[in-house]
Amino acid sequence: MTISEKDVRHVADLARLHVEDEEIGPLVRHFEAILGHFSALSRAGEEGRLVLDRVDPFLFAERETPPLRDDIPVRSAVGKDVLASAPLRKDTFFVVPRILEEE
């Protein structure tokens, strides 16, 4: 499985992660190496050493359903604490750069 610079830039875009030009080359090489390791799984499947046809991909030893709390309104009262960490805020809002383009 070969991976190109274009592929790496596309994945970076999906991940909302800016990568500098000088980071691209090493990332391509890293991807080539790691995808080589991952190909052990498909090779083993082709050779019959891993039979995955009817395997449940989300197998759990036991399932405990998470507990439900009583359906009573509760004030979380965390607003002040949450806003205290805001890089930029105005009243009870987090301030971010403009999202929509001007008409």
Binding site: R16, L17, H18, V82, S85, A86, P87, L88, F94, V96, P97, R98, I99
Partner: peptide, 18 residues
């Protein structure tokens, strides 16, 4: 960069994330 931690000063939301 919106609710906590490092936040780069950018002109658009997408650039903020990136």
């Amino acid at each position: 960069g919106v609710r906590y931690g490092l936040s780069s000063k950018e002109d658009s939301l997408l650039e903020l994330y990136l």
